[in-house]
Simulated scan of single mutants.
Amino acid sequence: MTTNEKTLTGTPNDWWDQAERITEAEAAERVLGTWYITSETRPSGASSYRVSTPTLASNEPRKAALRDAIAYGKKRESDMSAKVRVLMRVPIERPAWMDVDFLIADIEIGSTERSLWRKTNAGNWQLVLDGRVRVGEKTMLQLNPAIANITEESTA
């Protein structure tokens, strides 16, 4: 499929056959805006496909699993993935706030109260004033994020 195609035709088997083969490294660290098709086997033994788009947070467990498989000699980054292919690429512009450590954003959707949020190691956002509150990228987008510039001022 080309990067401009947005309509899938045929059966999921056709989609799989037409999808672009990628390496294990590319399957582990997926690109935002790209649609992936994954070949799965159900507990009953039936084959199926899953179509999905990634988030940065969803890349972390995949990258960790690949590191483990490499450490045990089961895979190499350059191996072609047997289970994941690129279905279509949809270029998106990544907002700058997604790559910073701190944001000022609404406390909850629809709120006018704003607070400081920090990025976690898992790629989610945690409310600094209440560490129990965490949100993903999609929710953060609805919280009107703004990049926080934190400086320390000396009083001496």
Rank of each mutant, 00 (worst) to 15 (best):
E137I: 04
G33C: 04
G73F: 01
E5R: 14
I109G: 03
L116Y: 11
E5I: 11
L143H: 07
L127Q: 03
E108I: 07
V31S: 13
S111W: 14
P95W: 06
S52A: 08
Y36A: 15
S111Y: 07
S58P: 09
K83P: 00
I70Q: 00
S47L: 14
A82L: 13
L87Y: 03
G110H: 01
I107M: 05
A148D: 14
L141N: 13
E108C: 02
T55H: 12
N13P: 01
D14K: 06
S115I: 01
A27G: 11
E5P: 09
M80Y: 06
K75T: 01
Q142D: 10
W97D: 06
W15L: 05
G73I: 00
P95H: 07
E152A: 14
T2Q: 05
M80G: 00
E77L: 03
A46I: 09
Q142I: 03
R89K: 15
V31R: 15
K138N: 12
Y72D: 08
A19P: 10
R62V: 00
Y49Q: 09
K119V: 08
E93D: 06
I150T: 09
M88V: 15
A69M: 03
S78N: 06
E152P: 03
E108P: 01
T3S: 12
N124G: 01
A105L: 05
M88S: 12
I104K: 07
A71N: 04
D99Y: 05
E77S: 05
A156C: 12
L129N: 14
A64P: 02
E137L: 07
V84F: 05
E77N: 09
E5N: 10
E5A: 13
P12N: 11
N4T: 14
E60H: 09
Q142L: 15
G10M: 04
A146F: 10
E137Y: 03
L103V: 05
E108S: 10
G131V: 08
N149K: 14
W35H: 08
N144E: 13
P54M: 12
Q18K: 15
D99H: 11
D68T: 12
V135Y: 03
T3F: 10
G136D: 10
D17K: 09
T34G: 02
N144L: 08
D130P: 05
D130V: 04
S48Q: 08
I22S: 07
P91N: 14
W97I: 02
T151W: 02
R132Y: 05
G123V: 07
R118G: 07
T112G: 08
D101T: 14
T3N: 11
T41K: 15
K6D: 03
D106G: 12
A27P: 05
M1Q: 04
P91G: 11
N149W: 08
T41W: 03
N4G: 10
I22A: 10
Q126H: 00
I22Q: 03
S39N: 09
T23I: 01
T120Y: 04
A25W: 00
T120Q: 15
I150F: 09
Q18L: 12
P54T: 06
E5V: 13
I107H: 08
G110M: 12
I22V: 09
G73C: 00
T11F: 11
K6R: 08
